[in-house]
Amino acid sequence: MLNGLEAVFFYLFAFVAVGAAFMVISSRNPVHSVLFLILTFFNAAGLFLLAGAEFLAMILLIVYVGAVMVLFLFVIMMLDVDFAEFKSGALQYAPIGALVGLILAAELVVVTGGYVLSPQLGSGAAQPVPDLATRSNTAALGDILYTDYIHFFQMAGIVLLVAMVGAIVLTLRHKQGVKRQNIARQNARTLEEAIEVRKVETGKGI
């Protein structure tokens, strides 16, 4: 399946991704952690490209690296957390952490070990699958998201909208007595109402 250059790049991306992911949890400086997380995303995008999913690779870069991680970095730079103090108490959570890790690993083993192909798969193969050369995966994804499952897509959108409105309502505060700009009023001002010309006599003032 993997041959020549593809294999070389696969192992390059995979090893750098794993190494960078390890650095995310082991580096002392939180900003370095975020930068390593970005490197991990980059390599994941590279793996997507090798798998032929160019649209997913680009969306991963645009959404996660271009927007989500920027906000992440923003918050971490602004918070002045003393990580030495933070880390000193970390060891007492080690047993619980190890337990969670063990459960997740066991679940992974169960899922991958019990993985079998569906018996109905043979009947599905008779349906024509469009050739990759004639149908780009961007168009195929678009068909699935916006045509086949449009209602689920819209519902997901509404859930996100509700979450966003909720966040805004929770943080929105109208303070009394704060001077605010009213852009429409500012733009509607004319020269006549803004400036008044007066004759001032020398030595008298207004």
């Binding site: 970005i38 680009m58 645009i62 690296v65 927007a67 961007t138």
Partner: peptide, 16 residues
Amino acid sequence: NVGILYVLAISSLEVY
């Protein structure tokens, strides 16, 4: 195939 997305992705990274 995804040229315009590539440009958008790279230009959104320039902020780093």
